[in-house]
Write a protein that binds this DNA or RNA. Sequence first.
DNA 1: TCGGGTCTTGACGCGATCCTGACGCGCCGT
DNA 2: ACGGCGCGTCAGGATCGCGTCAAGACCCGA
Lengths: 224, 224
Amino acid sequence: MTRVLVVDDDPTLVRALVVNLRARHFEVETASDGGTALRRAASHPPDLVILDLGLPDLDGLEVVAGLRGWTDVPIIVLSARDTQWAKVDALDAGADDYVTKPFGMDELLARMRASLRRAMPTPSAPVVTTDAFTVDLAARRVVRDGAPVRLTPTEWHLLEVLVRSPGKLVTHAELLRDVWGPAYVAQSNYLRVYLAQLRRKLELDPARPTHLITEPGLGYRFEP
Amino acid sequence: MTRVLVVDDDPTLVRALVVNLRARHFEVETASDGGTALRRAASHPPDLVILDLGLPDLDGLEVVAGLRGWTDVPIIVLSARDTQWAKVDALDAGADDYVTKPFGMDELLARMRASLRRAMPTPSAPVVTTDAFTVDLAARRVVRDGAPVRLTPTEWHLLEVLVRSPGKLVTHAELLRDVWGPAYVAQSNYLRVYLAQLRRKLELDPARPTHLITEPGLGYRFEP
DNA sequence: TCGGGTCTTGACGCGATCCTGACGCGCCGT
DNA sequence: ACGGCGCGTCAGGATCGCGTCAAGACCCGA
């Protein structure tokens, strides 16, 4: 089932969208402000985002940027502003399409289909597999030798950040910021401890890791 | 260079598009009817198609279907018809976007960028390749003979500075300042040692370097 | 209130990395 | 021919970062 995240602070419009999308067999989640939208998208990655630019807390473009920081999920922007520059700004910020209000529901649905069709070949890799274990980001689940692996919340969060950038080096600061919060970028003891635990649970030979690689002095890297 | 195929039977509009696109460093080809467009796209596959629906010979949607039969190239449809149903038909036929005439050139360019961004498999990763090794600056990774090369932080930093200015001479002072810090501009022993290590790890014949060239008395140069 | 699980924190040993000095070689000007 | 200069090479010791372990603090459900 295709999951859609609707971000809008107008309850009437949200209700109309929810009803129409549910009727088309989409799974719909909603958020009424930017902060909630970012959190909800992170905890429960959607297949498509419909984003109203007029939000109470964040600028809509900041939400686009926040999402684009870690995901390629298609984003369709809704806005009452019909100027060329508004469209250029939103599209260049990373949005896939820009629909001006008022809009026809059938047109929006067609644009959703077009965006989803285009995004399909790159299914945002919700499942990553190595020769030792399989990580299902959507289901928040790790399987090794056919059996699920028990991970603590912190362990999972750390693994998630690494797996989201396969092959790329993730610095100490990035990991600490994403998992523990911006205040912990100095501490570096956490990483050593939790990387060791992840390796103990996931690597075939924890003493000689082949997937959770340490780059001395810089950070760590997930190798698929 | 990105190749764009413009399909339209209105010479004025075509000329306007060609001028604007060429100015943005696109490579532009044109076709004034559907048959020509399909033939030209087949003989010279474009990276993006801009397609006017009002063509003399074929229905525009047949052109979309013809292209979609064998390619996933992004298609942006232009049309004077602003009804919801026209848009739904075009998008469901396989078009990526639908722009109604009259349109703003900047909006069209932004929508082109969005479509190209989405269609690109690897959105321009900053990688530098030589005949011996490949440097991926984003992932902080070096590959040689298919296997990743282990570099120490200092080695990597030094290589990074050199690779960021391909073909250009980088003086001793610049290298020392960027890698070791402004206080070390006098010392020059570090460079000799670390250049040697880089060559040992990267050059096919470390005794006769072909990519990490020394410029006696001045500095070093990375040759792609 | 108790108990299990999770998170933090510190200390320790070891290996990798970095720095350093010395040596040999080739180039170039004298 | 000779000496100076710059570069490449090597190996040893100091230092740093990483992996490991264990004990205490904390949270949450029973």
